[in-house]
Design a protein around this nucleic acid. Structure first.
Lengths: 191, 191, 191, 191
DNA sequence: GATGAATGAGACTTCATTCAT
DNA sequence: TATGAATGAAGTCTCATTCAT
């Protein structure tokens, strides 16, 4: 169906060029539909983008929620969350990056608000996981939302490095590194 | 002088709108010079941007290098590096964000390469600090460049959170949090 | 029936937005039919418009013709014609305005010709009434078609004023004013 | 200068096709400037249109004001006003028609408001002339603004007829007709 | 050194129309 | 009889860049 082709093409083109440099022309070309078809299925560029982002958030939220509902230990939960996040970020690299980092400015205000809301919602969601750990006395007493926000940046940035230096490390190394730094930091001995 | 006015205005406008949505018109207006003057001093938009970025990197590198040359302990060095980075990120917020995050795509290829080189150089620089710590046996044995890249993302993301939630925490909290998570992670007891 | 729903919706939408800004989309939406249905019943936008206009002319012609066939005095006939015209203009204001004023340009040439023909026909019709008055010596010797054309503009323009200044006068005032100016002009004493 | 060429071309193109069907492309082509040049001198289509209209109103107001300041009789004043209006309407026919009749809908709201204001201002201006006549007892006691609005429609519509039937009458006939109907109406004998 | 009018490629969007079902 | 997905030409507007002064 056209709509699916458009979505697939849009993910690809947005990822490739970022939001602003992605053109509706190129998306249409890539989806092998006429330009007008984009506007038949979506009101505009910003809304097309939003649709894709929301789908992505939905998916990762679903995956992570299943982790939460299991009776894994916190350590295992964190491990799984890192894995799922990495899946998302690596699968549709570029796209996740746009959502979490590129969109500070220059998009229709209302859509931007919604996207910020989604982002915040996701951070709250992660913060909730951390909060549990605090209550259980497993985690240090920290500002959980700040920690969640920081971790997302850490993940994004690490993925970027991993992708642009494919020979320097493999996926398992990356996952291991993230788990280590998040849980126990860089120092060998901690007091 | 015109050139200085342009640079000051450009920093402001790029920070405000991001690279793509910043227009040469607005920069000229903000600098109170004619549009042609921009092209008298700089070959084009990308090069103007590059100039500013290089200046910024120069400044932070200088500041941090002075830290390195002192004979502080690694703990203190890390503390100082966090502080300087935060200064940079918070002073010209928006701008640092653009450099580290927005510019994955959609800018003249050659300028983009140069900027990526600068970014990598900065990461190498941080990695060097960590490397020292590894050698000295203070830090875990990790991929230092990956860690440096990750930390930059962590810093950027945390700053963003701090800026958009000014009431949730103060600058000291932020600094403390970053030091803690970087050095000892989230877990209360580390082996 | 679909066709009737379309006509009703089209009158409404054309009146609201004028010919050029009225979209087939909105007409279909308003008529609660699919867009394709419009093209099932009418060859295109211009022809749909033409259909409606012809219906409207038919109706007013019928009404006025009944006036003509009666054996009223010319004074009474003019009074009635004003009343009927006002009915038409006020009932489907916007629409009458489009027909008489908006459509000078920018519509399919052949349809435009037909519409102009209808308009001329209506003016001829009014001119015929005036001609009678001339022959009977009741009216001044004037170019009756010019007078008819002028009167239509006078009516349209007055209606516009009446509609946008509902508090300044009532319907009877309007009718009285039109009768006065058409028959005896503005001057108090006429030779 | 480009700006003048644009204005001249715009008057021509708007008159030819009406507001909605006039395209910026055609105006640029007709003015022999690049499309971008239009936007260098004017913020957009609506504002370009507004500029032209305001110039036109300025001109006719100036002309008519000079009539008012003279010490002519009301009869002569009306005669002159008709003449000036006819000049305007016939010189830039199409254009005047657009301003007075086409612009009910479908133009940027704020510009439309301003144009309506101009139109109202002009009608008020004419109404002022009539008001004088009422006070002096020369004119019937009528709603002067309604009369002014009606007269504008009468003029516009008559001009249209005159232009499309150049063989049916000459300019003097037209002027004579308008003076007659406005001052003494159609009836031969008035009480 | 500095200007600003002019450019033109390219962006987003609209909408009358077609056609397979 | 009716549908609605799909089309593509055409429109408005943006903006980095050029160049004569």
């Amino acid at each position: 169906m056209s709509k699916d082709k458009i979505i697939a093409a849009a993910i690809h083109v947005f990822s490739e060029h970022g939001y602003h440099r992605a053109s509706m022309d190129e998306i249409a070309l890539s989806a092998q539909v006429a330009k007008g078809t984009l506007y038949y299925h979506f009101p505009g560029k910003a809304q097309l983008f939003k649709t894709i982002v929301m789908d992505g958030f939905q998916e990762i939220s679903d995956r992570i929620r299943s982790v939460m509902e299991s009776d894994l230990t916190l350590e295992e939960q964190i491990q799984r969350i890192i894995t799922h996040n990495l899946d998302l970020f690596l699968e549709s690299r570029g796209f996740a990056h746009i959502v979490f980092n590129e969109l500070s400015n220059g998009i229709e205000q209302d859509v931007l608000e919604e996207l910020k809301g989604l982002k915040e919602g996701y951070i709250d969601f992660l913060a909730g996981v951390l909060e549990e750990g605090c209550k259980d006395g497993v985690l240090r007493s920290i500002n959980c939302r700040l920690a969640a926000a920081g971790i997302v940046g850490l993940l994004d940035s690490s993925c970027n490095y991993y992708i642009s230096h494919p020979d320097a490390l493999n996926r398992d190394d990356l996952e291991q590194f993230l788990y280590t730094i998040i849980t126990t930091g860089l120092f060998k001995i901690n007091v």
